[in-house]
Write a protein that binds this DNA or RNA. Structure first.
Lengths: 189, 189
DNA sequence: ACCTGAACACCGTTCAAGT
DNA sequence: ACCTGAACACCGTTCAAGT
């Protein structure tokens, strides 16, 4: 018999520590050097597990989405709404989560799971599904980013306008209503 | 007669140089030190004109929007669409323009002009206007950000999916259709 | 009003070398 | 497979001092 226990993946420790560091100090506090210090290792050691910081952030983004239970029941607009709400919950459950995932997705270094889940909830929309998923993602990321940024600003002492959960459901309702309208219209093909 | 010529505002030179530096090197290349070098000045001198880098970026964002001629004719959905298209054009006309304006707006350090223009085009929507303007802004910034990021990635050699002008009009059509649906529905008040 | 000089406390990344 | 030691080429910001 060959060795059964494969060498413990140190790479997973790195992204776990990065997520913990994110929660304690935010995206600005998540530096390669601080992360190395938390792992009791030299900064250069990290590059054995990850090619660069951007890729690391992409993996942290994926880790954030890995635990999400994507809804699968209801009519398609209900399922789309539930999927969006669940994504939003995941983003808000970690400090600077929205900025992290939005950036990772923009560079295609992470966040694929969210797009895929949305796309699946939109299969009934046919060829319109990719554009609809993209539009929903822009709204969710943009709204969550604003919310987390303002929370930061409020903590820092500034007083910026309002907007919150109500605001989210209104906006989400608009976008889904728009998707329904477009999906009901016949298109070329 | 008193002095007519007020001391030339050196602060304007700073943001002009910052915009030029942004166009040549992108947001990553826009450092306080490089900006100071371009102005033949010590880095510390910049802090006489601007309290910090974030505020500087906010002013650069405002400069980017200052030249936009916001459309004012047509039915309100036409005007909203034209305003969005014009905003998008302004964002894409400078390197990393979308990221710059989106970030400035998230921190409320710039980009107010875009929100105000959108809000004005949505007056017919009544109390729904603020949520509609916010939703449109999230879509426009998110979409333009993705486009500019992918352009960057393509230049760097990577090959990431498609999406372009068509994609934008489809998404914009969805959101505006959704706003029309919600605005037509009676609400409390 | 505008700027210098010098410092402080940091960054991401590379690379030869070690076990 | 994983890590060290040392370096390279940078950052934003502060502050006393100068004109």
């Amino acid at each position: 018999m060959r060795e059964v226990a494969v060498a413990r993946n140190r790479g997973q420790d790195v992204i776990d520590a990065a997520l913990a560091l994110l929660d304690s100090g935010g995206l600005a506090g998540l530096s390669m050097r601080r992360l190395a210090a938390d792992l009791d290792v030299q900064p250069s050691a990290l590059y054995h597990h990850v090619p660069n910081k951007q890729t690391l952030l992409g993996r942290v983004a994926d880790e954030m989405l890995a635990t999400v239970a994507w809804p699968a029941s209801g009519t398609w607009p209900e399922r789309v709404a539930a999927t969006c709400t669940e994504l939003r919950r995941a983003l808000l459950s970690h400090r600077d989560g929205a900025e992290l995932v939005a950036t990772a997705w923009a560079f295609r270094l992470g966040g694929q799971a969210a797009y895929d889940a949305l796309l699946e909830s939109l299969t009934q929309c046919g060829e319109l599904a990719p554009a609809a998923a993209g539009t929903l993602l822009h709204f969710i990321y943009g709204h969550a980013l604003g919310e987390q940024t303002h929370h930061q600003a409020v903590v820092a002492g500034a007083d910026v306008g309002e907007g919150g959960v109500d605001d989210f459901s209104i906006g989400l309702g608009m976008v889904i209503a728009g998707i329904q309208v477009m999906a009901a219209r016949p298109s070329r093909g």
